[in-house]
């Protein structure tokens, strides 16, 4: 029997069967033993090298750096560095060459249109968390071959500008590590299942369950 201890441990703690732990440890390969690496390859990651790599920002915003910016500051930045691809004030209308055939060049507008076939997917109408916008601009914009030169202040300002143009915040609102998390995105509840599926169903299925598709629904 292979020991997949981290997984066992999680399942045990979830079901709160703490009393079973010693037994499980004996049966499997020993919890204390399994805390230690088996192969001992790799070296410890230092704080200094983790910090710059730890850039993906989740909805808790834990990874957000210090800094701030407002829509006013963002307007100038956007005109200089972004409108080339995303149109004036993020209104789109520009064909952006991507390798997969369609673009997300429009960033502004369309709020409330997602339930129509002519719906307009934009940052304002579709994204459930403001952190997603911050994260994407920070890590991916502007795209190659342009240089990625945005400071955290620049990114906060760009996000503030896009949110302002979508009517989600006021022009004078300052975006920072804290205020960004307070932004209520219009489409926050537009996705399901919420929270997303974390484990396969009892029958081993991940979504979607296509076996339902081929059995015609009872009318």
């Amino acid at each position: 029997m292979r020991c997949t201890t981290p997984y066992c441990r999680i399942r045990i703690s979830r079901s709160k069967s703490y009393f079973l732990l010693p037994v499980m440890a004996l049966l499997a390969c020993g919890t204390a033993m399994a805390q230690l690496p088996t192969y001992k390859v790799g070296r410890p990651a230092t704080e200094a090298e983790m910090r710059p790599w730890d850039a993906v920002v989740g909805s808790d915003g834990k990874e957000l750096p210090p800094g701030s910016g407002s829509a006013k500051e963002g307007a100038a930045l956007f005109a200089a560095q972004c409108s080339f691809c995303h149109g004036k004030d993020g209104q789109g209308g520009v064909i952006v060459p991507t390798s997969f055939g369609f673009t997300y060049s429009r960033l502004v507008g369309g709020v409330g249109t997602i339930n129509s076939p002519t719906g307009i997917k934009t940052v304002g109408s579709y994204m459930p968390y403001a952190t997603t916008i911050w994260d994407f601009i920070n890590r991916a914009m502007p795209p190659f071959p342009l240089e990625k030169n945005l400071t955290p202040d620049n990114v906060y300002a760009a996000v503030a500008f896009i949110l302002y143009k979508n009517g989600i915040i006021k022009e004078t609102d300052v975006m920072d590590k804290n205020s960004l998390l307070e932004v209520q995105m219009p489409n926050r509840h537009g996705f399901y299942p919420d929270p997303p599926q974390e484990k396969p169903g009892k029958d081993g299925y991940w979504l979607p369950r296509w076996e339902l598709a081929a059995k015609p629904a009872a009318k």
């Binding site: 299942p193 599926q197 979504l207 296509w210």
Partner: peptide
């Protein structure tokens, strides 16, 4: 996105 405006996400299989 579906006609009711709700979108399914994190589908993997």
């Amino acid at each position: 996105p579906k006609p009711n405006g709700q979108a399914s996400w994190y589908e993997t299989q």
